[in-house]
Nucleic acid binder design. Structure first.
Lengths: 218, 218
DNA sequence: GTCAACGATTTTGTATACAATACAGATCGT
DNA sequence: ACGATCTGTATTGTATACAAAATCGTTGAC
């Protein structure tokens, strides 16, 4: 029942947020969380602090922590930045990827294709994650890879919803093909451009999605 | 004597690191810091945790916190990313900056010029900070501005040393002129390119500097 | 003399106790 | 009856106490 000791508390909370178990704007009561995870408030506070630093939750002094709610405009800003970062990863990957990088990329894309053909949304989600992570790695810039991974995490909750849109899954797959080809032939600018577009489209799609159902200004 | 209550502890530590008061690799003893700031270990731990999340210090489980020492290769990676981010800021600033943005930019550059002519390294350092921050703001992407500011902080310690190199100060000023002009005339690609180069040069200069005096592999 | 294992000490990690601040409801005044 | 202030309660922020782990020194064996 209790969260296993050896594991990191932050990840658990992060996951709960990504999974939508903790909705945006929801209050994160320290005592409640402490009880739920079977620990004292101290490690909870530490986890919340880390999540606040990475921007996933917001801590208002003396007023508690809430799951950060990013308005549509801020979300667009985040996707804009993510697109640039991924584009950079792609550009560097095209220039620097070695054999093992390309193998990993191709394998991930193969998984994506399999999931897409089976209409397995969850499967595609994870394969897609591996594909993008493989690109981060292939950039041969460890720091960049870390940053990209971090951003990926932050956008996780929003990306996920967006995949369920009908047709998006196969479009995404086709885009991956183009990106993979560009990296394989070492075409840095094409890889960068295609990846940027790949991300920006997601942002725009999500923007549409959000604009339809919710309204909250930053 | 004691650190003022109303102010944030994290900033104080951050500053000490940036100023070189706490050298890279140095151990950060919680008890000592607590005594020094006149608080208990708890807020110290919170501050260290935040700094660890942003990458300024490294916390090894049960082995304490040390000022993160970034080897030359990692530093280059960081500058590579910073260059891209600043380039993005410049590109967007050229497209989106309004009157007040341009005014702030021009004012900051004026301060830079004054400091450069007076050979005031510290003064230039701060004016330079304002200049770059003004560009971040002008990008009209709040999230991007935050990320850029964060990266700027992380590179602070290294940037600072590097400014003392003779001649670099005036070269930097000249580069600012070009960047400012590009933004003012709305030339997005030029602004991006110039800013990227402006940052990359700093990274390379620092690489030279480090290679001469220190040796530690990642 | 060197190396390994054990124990004492120091230091981190967690829990609890306490203080301060913010929120809510009730009371009092107008 | 409405509004403002005050008091009670709940929750965050900080300090201290305790537990677990790592480091360092010592001792003993080879």
């Amino acid at each position: 029942m209790s969260g296993k000791r050896g594991f990191v508390l932050r990840d658990a909370l992060e996951n709960d947020i990504a999974m939508g178990l903790l909705k945006a704007g929801e209050r994160l009561d320290e005592a409640t969380l402490a009880q739920r995870f079977g620990v004292s408030r101290t490690p909870i506070r530490e986890a919340l602090l880390q999540l606040a630093t990475t921007g996933l939750v917001e801590i208002r002094p003396h007023r508690g922590a809430v799951v950060a709610q990013v308005g549509p405009s801020r979300l667009m800003e985040m996707f804009e930045v993510m697109a640039e970062i991924e584009g950079m990863c792609g550009r560097l990957a095209a220039r620097r990827a070695d054999g093992s990088d390309l193998t990993a990329l191709a394998a991930a894309q193969q998984d994506c294709r399999a999931a897409a053909e089976a209409d397995d949304t969850d499967g595609y989600y994870y394969a897609n994650e591996r594909f993008h992570h493989a690109i981060y790695q292939a950039s041969r810039n460890g720091f960049l890879a870390e940053q990209a991974t971090l951003m990926h995490r932050r956008l996780k909750p929003y990306r996920r919803l967006q995949l369920r849109v009908r047709g998006r899954l196969h479009t995404s797959l086709a885009e991956h093909d183009g990106i993979l080809a560009a990296i394989e032939r070492g075409d840095a600018e094409a890889a960068s451009h295609l990846l940027k577009a790949h991300i920006i489209i997601q942002g725009e799609r999500f923007g549409d999605l959000v604009a339809n159902l919710a309204e909250h200004t930053a």
